[in-house]
Write a protein that binds this DNA or RNA. Sequence first.
DNA 1: CATTACAGAGAACAGTTGTTAACTGGATGA
DNA 2: TCATCCAGTTAACAACTGTTCTCTGTAATG
Lengths: 207, 207
Amino acid sequence: MSHTCGTRQARKQKTRQALLDAALELLEGQSLSSLGLREVTRAVGVTPTAFYRHFESTADLGVALVEEALGSLHTVIRDALTATWDSDERITRTIELIVRHVRAYPAHVRFIARERHGGVQRVREAIGEQLAQFADEVREALRHDPDAAGWSQEDLEMLAGLYVDHMLETASLLLSMGDEGFEQVADRAERQLRLVSIGRKHWLDVS
Amino acid sequence: MSHTCGTRQARKQKTRQALLDAALELLEGQSLSSLGLREVTRAVGVTPTAFYRHFESTADLGVALVEEALGSLHTVIRDALTATWDSDERITRTIELIVRHVRAYPAHVRFIARERHGGVQRVREAIGEQLAQFADEVREALRHDPDAAGWSQEDLEMLAGLYVDHMLETASLLLSMGDEGFEQVADRAERQLRLVSIGRKHWLDVS
DNA sequence: CATTACAGAGAACAGTTGTTAACTGGATGA
DNA sequence: TCATCCAGTTAACAACTGTTCTCTGTAATG
């Protein structure tokens, strides 16, 4: 790597980011548990030993990638939750947000979908924690939703989990489709959310 | 390997199965894309070169594992679909079937959950095809269900997809829990299915 | 200006990998 | 009975892996 410009910390963070970027790109064709340290440094153009200045293993790098990938998703979710749309428009807008996010950060989405159940324990755990936090926020937002008034805490969690899982499932399904299938998948996901929405309206009728 | 007993074909299938079993066990701690050919043969106790008599690569072995793992799931699904329970009992029984299957074949479930979005394309495709077939069967069963009478083909597919995805999500969530969390997860999954069921009953009211 | 801190380079290590080729010996089939 | 087949072995190959140690040059610190 060139030692040409910028302050010390800045240059360090630059190569760190380069390592993350290169890893993310390499992970399009394999899973984290087969990602080699040398492979990453070779793609960046630095010595294998330089890797240790930033991460102590590829699993460690994976955890960093989780924060990067789910950090961007986090803002998207907060936006979707705080917006005050009516029930029907909210579904349409949410799907639109997902589609937009998949188009904007496909590698991030792929990484999360792949490593969520992947072969590296620490990374699985990191993703699990973040997703649990997402579910908590969704549940909290649902508490102030008129369509979920009077629901028990357990039922709110149940619904929040359904939404988070469905979001991830939709995102990774969008990824696996070419651009021509986007609309079809998005439409199906929208109808699925609508079905759930109808179930919500009549949930207290029976239980 | 010992050349001691059985006919020729039988011994060949025996080591083939041993390779599959060993691979499945090794895959509990990593993903397929990092599974080495030598690693598998070492676990079985045969020479690396013997591997080529059965598979041409670990990806090839992975495809074979897909058939084995989803073959057993297939019978479970058929049983659940053909049984004629009423709507409420069907949900309870279905969850019970999933729980039982996860307990009986945890390694199979883990493999499918991990490699469904994993790093090996051919295996992803093989799983995708099988799951699409599952969804087709579910959709066909839904066609004769009174609670889905008058639904369009697209809506039936939408619902079937929701069910298949939810089944897999539930199964892999059960896997990641210790035995003590089983009941809780199963209960939540059951309520989620009930929510969807309520949505089904009122689907035609609005669309 | 002199000193220290430290990101990255360089070289070497033991161990592993996938793959090839030639070989062995017991089951198979005429 | 004898020739054939073929699952598995043996040996060797170049290439690659993670990790350690020593070194270099520049930015930061006083």
